[in-house]
Amino acid sequence: MTPTRAADATSARGTLGRAVGAVLGFAVAVLSAVPAGAQAPAGDPARGEAVFNAAGCYGCHTDPVGPGAPLSGGRALKTPFGTFHSPNITPDGETGIGRWTEAQFAAAVRQGRMPTGESYFPAFPFVAYARMTDADVRDLFAYLRAQPPVRKANKPHDLSPPFGWRFLLPVWRTLYFDDDSLPPAPGRPESWVRGRYLVEVLGHCAECHTPRTWLGGIDRSRAYQGVGGGGVHDGGAVPGITQNPRTGIGNWSDDDILFLLEYGMTASGGTLGGGMGEVVRHGTAKMSDADRRAIVAYLRSLPAAP
């Protein structure tokens, strides 16, 4: 062996050694990051990101005041029932959802059930998410599990009695929760069907734009009529989005609505109040143009509020 070849062989062994070391190191790092019992999610995280944006997860699960790390929870949501603090949904095994199975995640999102079987408070919009498709749940789970884990303990809610009594939630659920499928819509174009899914399910628009009963249930008889004050989003007023030209968006053009959903301002340059700026920034601005148009198609079909 010539000196050059010997040097090459030494170098090759060194390179191989470093490569093996790097692979082993990476494997150890990956194995130690994945909590015991967790399985690799089956969903598509890239598709899950679109679901994540449309479902508005970032806004509630990230504390803008702290500020907290993305998705590590702790955001205070002031409502007439008290202040809720969102939980950590990063894949941390101790304080987040790192040890959850996909089935547990699906039960949380669509049924409002913790892994312990207890009910979440309906500040978490499981009433809307109940109709999320299997594929969207799976992909959303894959996306969340691909995010950086953050160790941050959840903060307890601060609710006024009796709204803080979790044992009353089963009663609330019998009044306001159902997981029936969205009804068939024969004759409606595909874009309307997609828009309905984005508005009613992922976007959970009714949570803020529909008035609530005194028990905090969504009052379907006044769907999307807006909330004059004392709304669930930090107590502010929320405008109606029915086709009523005075209280809703009946005199807005399609371009006006599309502009708001893409840029987060009204067509005349007005800023958006409450949480809508965040909804646009983290959600509708990132959607495809086709999805924003689908939302418009569905909103156009909402009957004008009286």
Binding site: Y263, G269, T271, G277
Partner: peptide, 13 residues
């Protein structure tokens, strides 16, 4: 245009 509107919005907000 997106950058301009973003700036309008950020300052007004």
């Amino acid at each position: 245009f997106g950058g301009v509107v973003g700036s309008c919005n950020a300052c007004h907000d």
